[in-house]
């Protein structure tokens, strides 16, 4: 774990440059360029509002029948989810894609997952002003609890990094992982209260369902965001503390495995 901190400090310049490159290269060549970072979440917001808000019409009392309220709720969970799923999916290919660098240049391999998680985080952060802007436009109340979302982001960063290290190192030896994870991510999406709130009738009626959802670390993170951005309430700090510990353990194990398998990367990618 100490080594990992050292990586962050020793290679901060490299990480920063590569994250910059990642973000720059993503929309390079397109007419709107960097503007896509804002436009993407905006268009997504429109799609989800139309489909879930107007067509499916949420009946949960939380949204008081308003499709716009639902859209804001949805968006507060969807943004961090896109960050997380981006990390998970990228992690299974990040070492393979950059195999040439690992093979031909003296390069600390752990920088690659770090760059992936960080670049996705930066991209996520571009969506937040959009969310806040819409809350203002729609007259949704904003509270100071919104600042606590930074804590949630920190925990999510640690958790994503742990998962990324774990998947990245295994994906080098087991290429099946990339295909498997595509499906797991879909399942994971529906196992996280993003399109439905935890107050949903079915969940309240069945205790075991709630228990299962609570086993998912993403549930607590997403709830944290929803409370900070949508409900304007205190984040579930007790559950998030547990999530933080779990995230930390994930990072510790993930990095340990990564370190163990490190020597195989150069040969296998």
């Amino acid at each position: 774990m100490k080594n990992l901190l050292k990586v962050f400090s020793d290679y901060r310049m490299l990480i920063r440059t590569l994250v910059g490159r990642e973000l720059k290269a993503r929309y390079r060549g397109s007419v709107l360029g960097f503007f896509w970072s804002f436009l993407n979440p905006l268009l997504l917001l429109v799609v989800y509002t139309v489909v879930f808000g107007f067509i499916l019409r949420p009946r949960d009392p939380t949204f008081s029948g308003s499709p716009f309220n639902y859209a804001l709720f949805l968006f507060s969970g969807l943004l961090p989810w896109i960050w997380f799923s981006g990390c998970v999916l990228e992690s299974t290919t990040v070492l393979l894609i950059n195999g040439n660098i690992l093979k031909k240049v003296m390069f600390p391999a752990e920088v690659l997952p770090i760059v992936s998680v960080t670049a996705n985080f930066v991209n996520f952060s571009f969506g937040i002003p959009i969310l806040i802007a819409f809350e203002i436009i729609l007259g949704h109340p904003i509270t100071l609890y919104i600042l606590l979302s930074i804590i949630v982001m920190f925990i999510q960063y640690i958790f994503s990094l742990g998962i990324s290290f774990f998947l990245a190192s295994l994906s080098v030896n087991y290429r099946d992982l990339q295909h498997l994870m595509v499906n797991i991510v879909t399942l994971w999406f529906f196992s996280t209260p993003i399109i439905y709130p935890m107050t949903f009738g079915v969940i309240n009626r069945h205790k075991w369902l709630k228990f299962l959802l609570y086993l998912n670390p993403l549930t607590h993170l997403v709830e944290g965001y929803q409370r900070a951005f949508y409900y304007g309430r205190m984040i579930p700090y007790k559950r998030l503390t547990v999530t933080f510990i779990v995230a930390f353990i994930f990072l510790w194990i993930g990095y340990w495995i990564f370190d163990k398998l490190r020597d195989t990367f150069v040969e296998e990618v």
Partner: peptide, 24 residues
């Protein structure tokens, strides 16, 4: 060992010099 390993095709030569240099 391999020249230009790690160059990113989408960004300019100048930017690649910085990234490659930092990598080295």
């Amino acid at each position: 060992i391999e020249l230009g390993a790690g160059f990113h095709p989408e960004i300019s030569g100048r930017e690649n010099i910085y990234i490659n240099g930092i990598m080295l």
